[in-house]
Amino acid sequence: MALINVDASRPDPMWAVVRLLAHSKKPVPLNGARALLSPPTLASGDKDASEMFNKAVKTLRELGLLHVAESTGELTLMGPAEHLDGQDWGAFAAALRSAVFAPQRNSGLGDNEEQRESRDLTRALAWFLTLDPMGPAVDWDQAQDLMKETPLRPEAGPAVVNAERWRQFCDWAHALGLAARPLLAGGGGSRLIPDCTTAVRYVMQYLWEPGRQVNAVTAVRSVREHLPVLSSGQYSLALHLPNPGDRVAGPALSFALLRGNDEGWMRLELDSDAAMVLQVSDPEQPSSPRYVSDITIQEDPSA
Rank of each mutant, 00 (worst) to 15 (best):
S24V: 01
S24D: 09
K25F: 04
K26N: 10
K26S: 11
K26Q: 06
K26M: 03
P27G: 14
P27N: 13
V28M: 02
V28N: 07
V28R: 11
P29V: 13
L30H: 10
L30V: 03
L30Y: 08
N31D: 03
N31E: 07
N31V: 02
N31T: 06
G32L: 01
G32R: 07
G32V: 05
G32Y: 06
G32S: 11
A33F: 02
A33Y: 04
R34F: 04
R34T: 07
R34S: 13
R34D: 04
A35V: 10
A35H: 12
A35Y: 15
A35C: 07
A35R: 14
L36P: 01
L36V: 03
L36G: 07
L37S: 03
L37N: 11
L37P: 04
L37M: 04
S38A: 13
S38K: 01
S38P: 00
S38M: 00
P39A: 15
P39F: 08
P39C: 14
P39G: 10
P40H: 14
P40K: 12
P40R: 14
P40L: 08
T41P: 00
T41Q: 00
T41E: 01
L42N: 08
L42D: 08
A43Q: 11
A43E: 06
A43S: 11
S44R: 10
S44P: 03
S44M: 08
S44K: 13
G45H: 15
G45S: 13
G45Y: 08
G45E: 03
G45R: 13
D46H: 13
D46S: 15
K47G: 14
K47V: 14
K47W: 06
K47T: 15
K47P: 02
K47H: 12
D48S: 02
D48M: 01
D48K: 03
D48A: 09
A49S: 13
A49C: 11
A49W: 04
A49Q: 10
S50I: 04
S50H: 07
S50T: 07
S50D: 01
S50A: 06
S50P: 00
S50Q: 11
E51R: 14
E51G: 07
E51Y: 06
E51P: 02
E51K: 12
E51N: 14
E51I: 05
M52L: 06
M52Q: 13
M52S: 15
M52K: 15
F53V: 07
F53T: 05
N54Y: 08
N54S: 12
N54D: 05
N54R: 11
N54V: 02
K55S: 09
K55C: 12
K55G: 13
A56V: 05
A56E: 02
A56M: 09
A56S: 14
A56T: 05
V57T: 05
V57E: 01
K58C: 00
K58S: 08
K58P: 00
T59R: 01
L60I: 01
L60Y: 04
L60A: 08
L60Q: 07
L60F: 10
R61F: 01
R61C: 09
R61Q: 14
R61T: 12
E62N: 10
E62Q: 10
E62D: 12
